[in-house]
């Protein structure tokens, strides 16, 4: 949380001036949206008559009523303590989203018949590709970071070229370059290894910077103490420096994993049956793409929320465990 001042004024949304401005602005916006031929206009029929013919008056009335409802809602939420504000606003936004999805006239039966395969095949593939990639990327990042901190010009040049190149190209392009380009060199690489390789190299490049910063943050005295006891470079790195750098490296690496989970959807273009691929294809025969896309979207979202929860736990662990 930001710095919380101990002097607290009136709640902003309870000032009459603010309330008035909110009502006016919301009314204008809702009116401009022209909502009289939607379900809202239908509800207002007793007041505005035939919605389609109500014109500006209809739009204005609908807009005004919606604005009043919205502002009352905001004012009421303003009375709640922080914790409940969070819960109420979350639930309301979630309800809005579900209404949005519901408006597509989704066939739940269809989703139910497909979701198990989406999880066992799609989520499983997405997760294992991401997990393998993040582990390999961590190794690449360790070597990249060491090379970038090295006094060896050759190593530094390769590492900086590598990070520059792979951070400079879109991941999708890297994927194509690897999948279509490697065979030109005589290595025919399958779709899954190509996807893992692309994700590894791309994220390895980003994580090189994370590892570099982590290693660099360790006091020079640790090196001196280790070296003065006769520890070699590798031993010092492995047993002294990296263990201390981990608390700084792991939280941002967790974030990278969450990002990778979503970026792994790109490997669907080379025909890997992960979540995104199934989302695009499973609804094909029955022309029910929205069902599959929304299902996959919700699955991605849930996965991300679970991972973010684990991530916050890891961060807290390292914050409290830093001696």
């Amino acid at each position: 949380m930001l710095f919380a001042d101990t002097v607290v004024g009136d709640t902003g949304v309870h000032k009459p001036k603010v309330i008035l401005i909110m009502v006016v602005v919301a009314t204008v916006i809702f009116t401009l949206l022209g909502l009289n031929d939607t379900i809202f206009g239908e509800i207002m029929r007793p007041v505005i008559g035939e919605p389609k013919e109500s014109g500006l008056f209809g739009n204005l009335s609908v807009g005004f009523v919606l604005a009043i409802i919205l502002v009352i809602n905001i004012v009421l939420i303003g009375f709640l303590p922080f914790r409940y504000q969070v819960i109420v606003v979350w639930l309301q936004l979630l309800a809005l989203f579900l209404t949005f999805f519901y408006s597509f006239d989704l066939k739940i039966e269809f989703i139910r018949s497909k979701i198990w395969f989406m999880i066992t095949q799609g989520v499983f593939t997405t997760l294992y590709i991401s997990a393998i990639s993040i582990i390999l990327a961590s190794f690449v990042a360790i070597f990249g970071a060491i090379a970038k901190l090295s006094s060896n010009g050759f190593a530094f040049a390769i590492a900086s070229f590598y990070t520059s190149f792979f951070r400079g190209l879109p991941l999708l392009m890297q994927l194509y370059l690897i999948y279509l380009g490697m065979p030109q060199l005589g290595y025919v690489i399958d779709a899954v290894p190509a996807g893992i390789l692309a994700l590894t190299l791309c994220y390895g490049a980003y994580m090189t910077e994370i590892f570099r910063a982590g290693i660099q943050s360790i006091n020079k005295g640790q090196w001196e103490a280790s070296r003065s006891m006769g520890f070699g470079f590798g031993l010092t790195m492995r047993r002294i420096i990296l263990p201390q750098a981990m608390p700084l490296i792991i939280p941002p690496t967790g974030n990278q994993f969450i990002a990778m989970l979503k970026d792994s959807s790109l490997v669907s273009v080379i025909g890997v049956w992960e979540l995104m691929f199934l989302a695009r294809t499973m609804g094909n025969k029955d022309f029910r793409h929205m069902e599959m896309l929304i299902t996959a979207a919700l699955i991605y979202w849930c996965l991300t929320m679970v991972l973010e929860f684990i991530q916050s736990r890891i961060e807290r662990h390292y914050r409290t465990a830093s001696h």
């Binding site: 390999l136 070597f143 090295s150 060896n152 050759f154 290595y187 025919v188 090196w223």
Partner: peptide, 24 residues
């Protein structure tokens, strides 16, 4: 910081080692 050259050679080799499912 001095770098062990062998370590680095290995690092550059990772990319090739990955493409284990190689066929011609």
């Amino acid at each position: 910081m001095k770098l062990n050259r062998r370590i680095f050679t290995f690092a550059t080799g990772v990319a090739l080692a990955l493409s284990s499912s190689v066929s011609f």
